[in-house]
Write a protein that binds this DNA or RNA. Structure first.
Length: 668
DNA sequence: AATCGTCTGCTTTTT
DNA sequence: GCAGACGATT
């Protein structure tokens, strides 16, 4: 094992790292150093003589993949680390499909549709298919289509129903658009590997050692994909925690991890239970809660860091008091405990709960940042530019074409567009091809014809430039933006100058990222677009909002993160567990959600609940969450917010209050 | 083509 | 209570 030491690993972690052959299940509880184990294991494999190209680590998010890559680079030499594949499931699928998708009847320049594109297409199909009196919610249709794909339901639903018809047409339409949605990336890759032994064997040879992160979140297709890739040597190591499975509603199958032995016989099973994050008061609270879940692999987190303070369960009059209490306390503790703002996090079940907290923090001039909300890639201007790129690279991509055909306005009216799509449907050609069609053009006014010609000319010229070898492609995109006057149009369409600046900034940001991309890759606009389409991540990593502040975050988004001081709010029946979980039979998953929330805390934790809450525009009475009864009395303490807010002034406390008040005044 | 008004319906959101 | 969607109106 030359050149590599098993730095500071505990015995279980070391076993996980040293077990290199055959199936391996690493049950990694919250805060037990799972990323460290994965990266150390990759490093160990390479130190043992495995070629770095042979190692594949699959994650769910780009963030996780990047983090691992960076960590690995600190363990082994950079050129070696670079050869290891660390990517998301979806990115891996794109790589596989870009090579061999032709075997499935798609073209290699296929476009990737995100949820917005998908919705647009489904809406179009519904209006095209529905009779006058029929109605179908597009998001219902979208969810069903996704579910069907993930369950590999080959038999389509009743074709007679509108839903069935839309379902069938959707798939056919995507294929003629030469496009795939996120689900297709997995479906088609699995199909390719199933039906084409040569391709399968090639990828099996390529990756001799597989690792899968967050295995509790894999769905059926992802499991199938892993099985296919692992088939030959079965060197598959998965890391996960069934207790943190909170994405069942998105198709994740906890059974993948619960029944791992059925999928990969005779694995070595390693349990990581030593937690490096929290106090034992916090861990024992979490441990006790989760034992109420019936289907799980028993685990007991423990820490060498001592008991710590008891977990506080604080009851409030209402959500107003809850927000006030939290803002006040954070302001005080920042001073008295010499804490930084970013040491505090407020966790909640629903985004709507953030609003009141936000207001109260703002009143006290406490800096904060909200994680979640709208994605960078959901912004209109970003979508527009990516649609331009996609339309240039894949002329069959009608969805992107239609998005930009009159953006900025260039005299192509909805009526004209409607005619073009009708022609394309009748002649079974792309909308772009329809634009040059004689039958179509004969229906137009001279004016409209001129606009159409200018548009065709525009796309043709830029397409030619893109296909010219050795061009700097981001220059092409830049010229395109200038040529169509995109920025001017963007500014004009904004209500406020602020908004205009914000949107312009997004465009600049996108271009900046493209420039960076061209610096590190030779894949050009195609590669850049792929990467962009597979990055739905929130904008918290761009430089502007990086700074400090109290974090406001949903329980889902908080998974994997940690904070010294956590406030988990709205622990009420109906909120957590959410009302809907009862009818859906997913209360266990809600319990895991609370478990995830509790285990985010490093040193202190407060759970709060209100006797009444403003909900959907009216005050509704609330009761404490039934989960609170499941917590261990010896590690928790119950309080009323009123007691704490109006606590009798003690000497120390009054000093604290005074200091906090002064600090606040200083911020003003 | 754009803007205004009213209706609805409402968790969570890795790609 | 509020956002987002859709339809009517200028």
């Amino acid at each position: 094992m030359a050149g590599f030491r098993l730095f500071d690993l505990n015995p279980e972690q070391e076993t996980a790292v040293r077990t290199t052959e055959g199936p391996l299940l690493i049950l990694a509880g919250a805060g037990t150093g799972k990323t460290r184990v994965i990266t150390a294991r990759a490093a160990f494999l390479i130190a043992e003589g495995v070629a770095p190209e042979q190692v594949l680590a699959v994650t769910f998010t780009n963030k996780a993949a990047n983090e691992m890559r960076e960590r690995l680079a600190t363990l082994i030499e950079k050129p070696q680390a670079k050869k290891v594949t660390m990517c998301t499931f979806h990115a891996l699928c794109v790589r596989i499909l870009r090579q061999d998708i032709e075997k499935l009847g798609y073209k290699r320049n296929f476009s990737i549709y995100d949820e917005g594109d998908q919705m647009g297409l489904i809406k179009k199909l519904i209006t095209r298919t529905a009779a006058k009196d029929e109605k179908l919610d597009p998001s219902v249709a979208k969810n069903l289509i996704s579910k069907a794909k993930n369950h590999a339901w080959n038999a389509p639903p009743d074709e007679q129903t509108l839903l069935g018809a839309v379902y069938l047409r959707y798939q056919a339409e995507l294929k003629t658009l030469n496009a795939v949605d996120f689900d297709d990336l997995l479906v088609l890759t699995v199909k390719l590997l199933t039906e084409h032994a040569d391709v399968r064997e090639r990828w099996q040879r390529r990756f001799g050692y597989l690792m899968v992160d967050e295995f509790q979140d894999t769905n059926r297709l992802q499991l199938e994909l892993v099985s296919h890739l692992a088939d030959a040597r079965n060197n598959v190591a998965v890391v996960g925690d069934d207790d943190q499975s909170i994405y069942g509603w998105r198709g994740a199958e906890v059974s993948n991890i619960l029944e791992f032995e059925a999928h990969f016989p005779n694995p070595v099973v390693v349990k990581l239970e030593q937690n490096y994050r929290s106090t034992n008061a916090i861990l024992n609270t979490a441990n006790k809660l989760i034992t109420n879940n019936p289907r799980r692999r028993p685990k007991q987190l423990w820490s060498a860091q001592g008991d710590g303070a008891k977990v506080r369960i604080v009851q409030m009059l209402d959500d107003r008091q809850e927000a006030e209490f939290i803002a006040n306390e954070i302001a005080t503790r920042q001073v008295t405990e010499h804490a930084k703002w970013e040491d505090f996090a407020v966790l909640f079940r629903m985004n709507a709960q953030a609003r009141l907290i936000e207001t109260n923090l703002r009143q006290l001039k406490i800096p904060y940042r909200i994680i979640g909300g709208k994605s960078f890639f959901d912004r209109r201007e970003v979508k527009d530019l990516l649609a331009y790129a996609s339309a240039l690279l894949n002329t069959d991509d009608d969805v992107s074409l239609l998005r930009i055909i009159n953006t900025p306005a260039r005299g192509i009216s909805p009526a004209t567009v409607e005619r073009a799509t009708a022609i394309s449907a009748r002649k079974k050609c792309s909308v772009f091809a329809a634009l040059s069609d004689e039958d179509f053009r004969s229906e137009l006014t001279p004016r409209a014809t001129a606009s159409i010609d200018a548009f065709i000319e525009l796309l043709d010229s830029f397409e030619t430039r893109l296909n010219t070898p050795l061009t700097v492609q981001n220059g092409v995109l830049r010229d395109l933006i200038a040529k169509v006057g995109y920025l001017e149009d963007l500014r004009r369409s904004c209500k406020t100058p602020e908004e205009g600046l914000q949107r312009e900034h997004s465009v600049m940001e996108l271009m900046k990222q493209f420039t960076e991309y061209e610096g590190r890759s030779a894949e050009g606009l195609r590669g850049f677009l792929d990467e962009m389409m597979l990055r739905n991540e929130r904008q918290d990593d761009d430089d502007e909002l990086k700074g400090d502040g109290v974090t406001l975050i949903t329980l889902h988004a908080a998974k994997g993160l940690e904070y010294p001081h956590v406030y988990l709010i709205g622990v009420e029946e109906g909120v957590l567990p959410h009302d809907r979980s009862k009818v859906e039979g997913t209360v266990d998953e809600e319990r895991r959600l609370l478990y995830v929330g509790i285990t985010r805390a490093q040193t202190t934790l407060a759970l709060t609940w209100c006797h009444s809450r403003f909900k959907y525009g009216s005050v509704t009475p609330c009761t404490a969450s039934s989960f609170l009864k499941e917590l261990p009395p010896e590690w928790t303490e119950h309080r009323h917010a009123g007691q704490i807010l109006n606590a009798p002034v003690e000497h120390a406390a009054s000093g604290d209050r005074f200091a906090a008040m002064k600090a606040m005044l200083d911020r003003l």
